[in-house]
Write a protein that binds this DNA or RNA. Structure first.
Lengths: 116, 116
DNA sequence: CTTATCTACAACCATTCGGTTGTAGATCTA
DNA sequence: TAGATCTACAACCGAATGGTTGTAGATAAG
């Protein structure tokens, strides 16, 4: 299994990119099919330039990629980066589970000591 | 199963709270055992007040809770909120998998049509 | 060729963020 | 009681965010 240790800086960028409802919506839309930036801009009550900036934030975080197609720039979600974020949270939950196990172990030892 | 539909505003706060290495570290430490705010402050190269603000951000997002114990304020990670964030990402991955299934379906239909 | 569309980017502005210092209240300890 | 510790909170500051408008270059369409 590939470990893919992700740096704190990248984690910062990924979570920051996800901390905005418009950007999360762009990610969801760009899963189902590629959208041009101006097509995406049509969905939100803000200027084209604003949406362009949101896409740029997502792109810097690696959550989205763009490929040129004529005069359009097609935006596609990079599901792998979503998975990286998911794993970061999973690691935290793993620490939680490990703590529970350690707790159970102590309980078992106490049982053994009290019931020889 | 409880659905627990999470509002966009809460999602914003959760991901924003996670978009900082110091705050993620606080979350990890406060899983293993309760820490006072000043104990946490000892781990980071910044003032007590700065760490206090980080804890406040985590608390507003529901990632952490505080309980008073004498003159100290003990910080504890709320694993449920981590799980909520995890589910939000899982939903996005689910959309991806659904798209793959639809794609496979179309391929199967094409096979059926081309191979009667 | 001319015009419309799509994109990139700069400049600007208000607000938020992440840090600081300082002050004051509450609680433990000598 | 006096002093040390822990916390809360306000005020301030520079940098980043999230939005705007405007300008200019590529590409498609008439």
């Amino acid at each position: 299994m590939v470990v893919d240790k992700v740096g704190e800086g990248l984690a910062d960028e990924i979570f920051h990119a996800l901390a905005d409802a418009t950007r999360r919506d762009i990610v969801r839309r760009a899963i189902l099919g590629d959208h041009s930036v101006s097509a995406l801009a049509g969905y939100y009550p803000m200027s084209f330039a604003a949406v362009q900036k949101h896409v740029a934030v997502l792109e810097r975080a690696g959550l989205v990629s763009k490929r040129k197609c004529g005069r359009r720039q097609l935006v596609k979600t990079e599901i792998h980066t979503i998975h990286i974020a998911n794993q970061l949270l999973e690691e935290i939950e793993a620490v939680w589970r490990a703590r529970l196990e350690r707790f159970d172990e102590v309980l078992a030892e106490a049982d053994q000591g009290a019931n020889p």
